[in-house]
Design a protein around this nucleic acid. Structure first.
Length: 364
DNA sequence: GTTTTGTAATGGATGGATCA
DNA sequence: TGATCCATCCATTACAAAAC
């Protein structure tokens, strides 16, 4: 939506976390917030989320907290309420959808030091929060660095698609998995775990919920996964087309359903290399171009997957690339530790700040 | 006026019917 | 029989109506 001179910003839950998608409304009815107000998500899965420094009309699931006495710094109050997030959530009412309890919110005792001290505390917490966010940003940059290394070593196949002589179907055994609901009478059966679409995420496997399926014994042999197989989903969001992850044998005797394709590469290719290749703009573009698109969803079939052009890179070059990736992984692990420390530091500061235990000279 | 409950819209996963 | 794709179900969110 394009902002006109008369439009107000329309603030919803997501706007409390980031400014990624700013919306505007012509409407002038409803609750208007100013930068000096604190906003709280009043109901829903994100009840208790705090925002401040925003100006516009708020949605019905948000509530405005207006400071009615002088000498209260908005940033300080916002940080205080953020520090009470768990407590606010624990006191929510509602059987299915949590609602912030106004009684509890009003009962919170806000420590009120002199205004300059409030501003100092808010500034210290802001600084610690920024450090925390820098670590998170570093993680994202390390992830995109892996893709840059790939492009540096192998080039951008979008500019040199003619160099890709092989297709996936020629260098790998690609098949879809077992279909649920088959007639099983008269067959020897076995019940085994199986991978569903929900288990296969972009670059990793979500194994938090594994379901079992009863299949014919001969089908089990056909669909059984082996370490090094790459699992890919049929479709989903446009930006998640061709999402896949490497199966490394995490669960014994596991198979896959018909909406999850299994790619078993020949020995000229290393699974990890193929997994990074799947992340390249060229592959994303290929899937997007050939996918069948319906409202907000896109899907590929096995023929299109088998037709994916594959680069003919030597094993040595693939291994060189993966050695660099290993170094990046080490950096990511180090950054992860820093991130944990930054989070712990921020949480500790937050708790101490509102108990009056923060020595501002030490943290300035 | 406030809180709780209900519902529509939307996004996404998957079972199973249909077709080659 | 395997591949494809439609229909349906489920979860989440935003909003509105009903109940207190």
């Amino acid at each position: 939506m394009v902002k006109s001179v008369t439009n107000n910003r329309y603030i919803q839950i997501d706007d409390l976390r980031n400014d990624n998608l700013i919306k505007y409304t012509d409407d002038d009815k409803g609750t208007f917030v100013e930068p000096s107000d604190v906003i709280i998500a009043w109901d829903g899965a994100n009840a208790g989320t705090i925002g401040y420094g925003l100006e516009g009309l708020i949605g019905s699931t948000l509530a405005r907290l207006k400071v009615i006495i002088p000498h209260i710094d908005t940033n300080y109050l916002g940080r205080f309420l953020q520090s009470k997030f768990k407590e606010i959530r624990n006191n929510c009412t509602g059987a299915t959808i949590p609602h912030v309890s106004k009684v509890h919110l009003n009962s919170l005792l806000v420590p009120v030091p002199p205004l300059p001290i409030q501003k100092q505390i808010a500034a210290v917490l802001e600084k610690a929060d920024n450090l925390r966010q820098q670590s998170q940003q570093m993680e994202q940059e390390l992830n995109s660095l892996a893709q840059s290394v790939f492009l540096d070593m192998f080039g951008d196949y979008r500019k040199d698609a003619m160099s890709l002589k092989s297709s996936l179907g020629e260098v790998a055994d690609v098949r879809s998995g077992v279909t649920k609901g088959q007639k099983l009478e008269g067959h020897k059966l076995t019940t085994v775990p199986y991978m569903r679409v929900a288990n296969v995420q972009d670059g990793y496997l979500d194994l938090s919920e594994i379901k079992d399926i009863t299949v014919k014994a001969k089908d089990f042999e056909k669909y059984q996964l082996k370490a090094g197989d790459v699992l890919m989903t049929e479709g989903g969001d446009f930006d998640k087309l061709g999402r896949g992850a490497i199966w490394s044998g995490q669960i014994a005797n596991c198979i896959h359903q018909n909406h999850v394709f299994r790619v078993r590469l020949c020995d000229r290719y290393i699974s990890e290399f193929f997994a990074y290749y799947l992340q390249t703009p060229f592959v994303k573009q290929y899937f997007l171009k050939c996918a069948k698109k319906t409202t907000n969803l896109a899907s590929i079939n096995i023929t299109q997957l088998k037709g994916l052009p594959i680069p003919d890179e030597s094993i040595g070059k693939q291994q060189s690339f993966l050695r660099i990736i290993d170094e990046l992984k080490a950096l990511k692990e180090a950054n992860f530790e820093q991130q944990e420390q930054a989070n712990a530091h921020f949480n500790s500061l937050m708790q101490r700040a509102f108990k009056g235990e923060l020595d501002l000279k030490d943290v300035a």
